[in-house]
Simulated assay, not measured.
Amino acid sequence: MTPRAATRPVGTVTRGTTNPNRLRRMDRWIAAVHGAELRRAQRPVAVDLGYGAAPWTAVELLGRLRTAAPRTAVVGIEIDPARVAAARPYEREGLEFRHGGFEVPLPAPPQLIRAANVLRQYDEDQVAQVWSRLCARLAPAGPHGSRGGLLVEGTCDEIGRRHVWVALGPEGPRTVTFAARLASLDRPSDLAERLPKALIHRNVPGEPVHAFLRDFDRAWAAAAPYASYGARQRWIRAVRDLTADWPVTDGPARWRQGEVTVAWEALAPRGR
């Protein structure tokens, strides 16, 4: 890919902390739900935006996406030039690293932008502008049922046990996914501490995300008899009960992975 002319990166330097396998749950979800779009693209490109002080997450993203779409290339983009220089020795076929930020300095729109643990340090009122900028950089919707590129923005804990992320297309937010290593979970609302910036300050009475987590905890408690069959069966039962009142967009195949995905409109902050 031919680089664009140099521009000043948009954004601020993050703490850069990262660990191997931290984003495996997010990566596997992307491969499962977005793999068809990647396969459909002539030259599928995925961006690991703000990969941090070490390139592990970009290296792992390439391997996981290629299980679903073998022609996928990954570009790691970092606003700190020293981190880019440190990552360059890891470049290989299909993997490169570039200096940049929210402007996403690529010659063509990517099919995927993953921005994990990037917006935690930003103010809530900055999120909409960042989302809009990144969504504008995605590959547009096209013929034959293509919905265009995907932005996945969210947060997780340091070792990847608990995640919450928002998936957005060129048109804007689509869904919110909650994912966990179920053995580490006392109750679903434990995931509240990993809500992305757009939602974390809205986990208060009167806001939809608070109501959702309250109902999820109630469904989890009601499913307690299933715990004798394991945390996975209890989770599946609780999510199945949630579908009576909440627009869950996935099914048992994803629930078994310790996930549940809900339409964004149901959880969007009041007044947005």
Rank of each mutant, 00 (worst) to 15 (best):
L182G: 10
L182S: 13
A183V: 15
A183P: 14
S184V: 09
S184F: 08
S184P: 08
D186I: 14
R187I: 07
S189V: 08
S189Y: 11
L191A: 05
A192P: 08
E193F: 12
E193C: 11
E193Y: 12
R194K: 11
P196G: 05
P196Y: 05
K197N: 12
K197C: 10
K197G: 08
A198V: 10
L199R: 06
L199H: 04
I200K: 09
H201A: 12
H201C: 11
N203K: 06
G206E: 13
E207N: 05
P208K: 02
P208R: 02
P208H: 05
V209L: 05
H210E: 04
H210R: 09
L213V: 03
F216E: 01
F216K: 01
R218N: 13
R218S: 12
R218H: 13
A219E: 01
A221P: 01
A222L: 15
A223R: 06
A223G: 07
A223K: 09
P225S: 06
P225Y: 09
Y226C: 11
A227V: 13
S228A: 12
Y229A: 14
Y229M: 14
G230D: 12
A231I: 09
R232E: 12
R232Y: 10
W235V: 09
W235K: 08
R237G: 07
R237F: 08
V239E: 00
V239L: 02
V239C: 01
D241I: 01
D241P: 00
A244Y: 07
P247N: 04
V248Y: 02
T249R: 09
R254K: 07
R254L: 11
Q257Y: 05
G258L: 04
